[in-house]
């Protein structure tokens, strides 16, 4: 997993849909490990959106996702991600398609 030069080990990560973000700062403010920051970039509506500035600190606790009023970010533990990915793969295969 993430080898990023610190002694800590990331246990999870976040996913962002910048186009939904309204830059409210909830996720950044209430992340318990303070690992998010605003990106210097703007989305199409002119808002700065969050970026995982200190990935090694992210525990994947998911709080940012519970806070985000715009459904623009969510965090997950790697374990959960793998489990979900496997479920998705299994479902796609059952449906006869290829995972995209």
């Amino acid at each position: 997993m993430a080898g990023n030069g610190t002694s800590r080990k990331a246990r999870g990560t976040v996913f962002v849909r910048p186009e939904l973000c309204k830059g409210c700062d909830y996720c950044i403010e209430f992340c318990p490990t303070d690992c998010l920051e605003f990106s210097p970039n703007f989305n199409a509506k002119g808002y700065h959106y969050p970026t995982l500035a200190r990935p090694e600190d992210c525990t994947g606790c998911g709080l940012c996702g519970l806070y985000c009023p715009d459904f623009a970010i969510f965090g997950m533990r790697f374990q959960e991600i793998e489990a979900m990915r496997e479920r998705l793969m299994a479902r796609t295969q059952n449906e006869g398609g290829t995972p995209k």
Binding site: F15, T51, P99
Partner: peptide, 15 residues
């Protein structure tokens, strides 16, 4: 979905 920073996941799942 857009993973912001690549957390070195083996596969990017369509989450």
């Amino acid at each position: 979905t857009t993973p912001l920073e690549d957390p070195n996941l083996a596969i990017q799942p369509p989450l």
